[in-house]
């Protein structure tokens, strides 16, 4: 049974079905559907919804709930996500799982609420201080808003690391038929490290402060091993028509959807274009892009910003592959025609 469901609602329902029982958040457009839905539906499953006094409070409430072993989530956008960055760093440093949702709004500053992808660098390349990574998942459909939220909880617990859902406002606001049941049964792992009260066992400590000589270097190298393992095992991407492609479009989120239509029309005109859509932005599909770039010598990166994922694509490419860019920042959305015109210019 598939139900017409808004992206943000699919995400919120995905969180409930993933076993998330704690939500802390502060309102901001274009993600308000998420707290609105959870305020109504978390109590139904015995969960707790707290409208926090600020985003800084939200992220630190998440840290507390996570340290106690619960699946917890917050969501925000733009300025709210910026305020949370210290908490991201503390979560990563303390090796605590959490799911943070960023339905992007335009920046810098208070910006605007139209669809955009200006927060790629903040999400993928830090934002908070220190040597850490968020796991970053980039849904491109309402179904993926549901499925990848469940995946985010799974990965966050598996690696004890914050996982972010990074979506533009079109993915958050549009509606598609969705299957609102998990693809596989949700299994919440045991968390022997959690602070559940030390009755009958030695006391445990969760912290990100390591002042002993060499302790922090060991901690950083341990974290690095974890990120390397993610790069080995957790990369997700989708490809379309790359077997015979003369040009590869690389896009995530909404631009990847629009690129699919552009590619369909281009192929009808005899232009052999294909698509690689990163689903995980960290870990990034660098290896796959490198391999495809050995054969496909032209790449067009399409983003709704001025060129952020572009740098990761350039780093991943084989020598001699030309990487071009088409970007629409500040709420501009490319039509399929626009992407087709860009591709034709490069042939």
């Amino acid at each position: 049974m598939r139900v017409l469901t808004k992206g943000n609602i699919a995400l919120a329902e995905g969180a409930i079905q993933a076993g998330c029982r704690y939500y802390f958040g502060y309102p901001i457009t274009p993600q308000n559907d998420i707290p609105e839905y959870l305020a109504k539906h978390l109590p139904r499953v015995g969960g707790t919804f707290i409208p926090a006094e600020s985003e800084i409070a939200s992220i630190n409430m998440i840290l507390g709930a996570s340290a106690a072993g619960a699946r917890a989530m917050t969501s925000s956008s733009g300025p709210g996500i910026s305020l949370m960055q210290e908490g991201f760093s503390y979560l990563a440093g303390s090796e605590l799982p959490a799911v943070i949702v960023n339905i992007m709004r335009i920046g810098p500053g208070l910006g605007g609420i139209a669809p955009t992808q200006g927060d790629y660098n903040q999400a993928v390349h830090g934002g908070g201080h220190g040597d850490y990574h968020n796991i970053v998942l980039a849904p491109a459909s309402c179904q993926e808003m549901f499925d990848l939220t469940i995946k985010a909880f799974e990965l966050a617990d598996k690696y004890r690391n914050p996982a972010m859902i990074l979506a533009d406002a079109m993915v958050g606001q549009f509606q598609e038929p969705c299957r609102l049941t998990p693809k596989e049964p949700v299994v919440i792992p045991e968390k022997p490290w959690a602070l559940t009260g030390a009755m009958g066992r030695p006391a445990q400590l969760i912290k990100s402060l390591f002042l002993g000589p060499g302790e922090m270097e060991i901690h950083n190298l341990d974290l690095k091993k974890k990120y390397d393992t993610m790069e080995q095992n957790e990369v997700m991407y989708e490809t379309r028509h790359l077997d015979d492609a003369d040009i590869m479009i690389i896009a995530f989120g909404t631009p990847s959807r629009i690129a699919k239509t552009a590619i369909q029309f281009l192929r009808q005109e005899g232009v052999r274009a294909g698509l690689l859509r990163p689903i995980t932005l960290f870990p990034f599909p660098s290896k796959a892009i490198h391999e495809y770039s050995q054969r496909i010598k032209k790449i067009l990166v399409v983003e709704m910003n001025t060129g952020q994922m572009l740098r990761d694509v350039q780093l991943a490419c084989h020598n001699g592959t030309r990487v071009y860019f088409y970007g629409r920042p500040g709420g501009g959305i490319p039509y399929p025609d626009d992407i087709m015109a860009q591709v034709k210019k490069l042939l």
Partner: peptide, 27 residues
């Protein structure tokens, strides 16, 4: 979508297909 609770402009793009839909916008 906008910041207004009521009033303002409203427009909706609907795409129907028997195949997977790429772009939800159309010009």
């Amino acid at each position: 979508y906008g910041v207004e609770k009521r009033g303002g402009r409203t427009n909706v793009f609907v795409v129907i297909s028997d195949e997977e839909i790429g772009s939800p916008i159309t010009n």
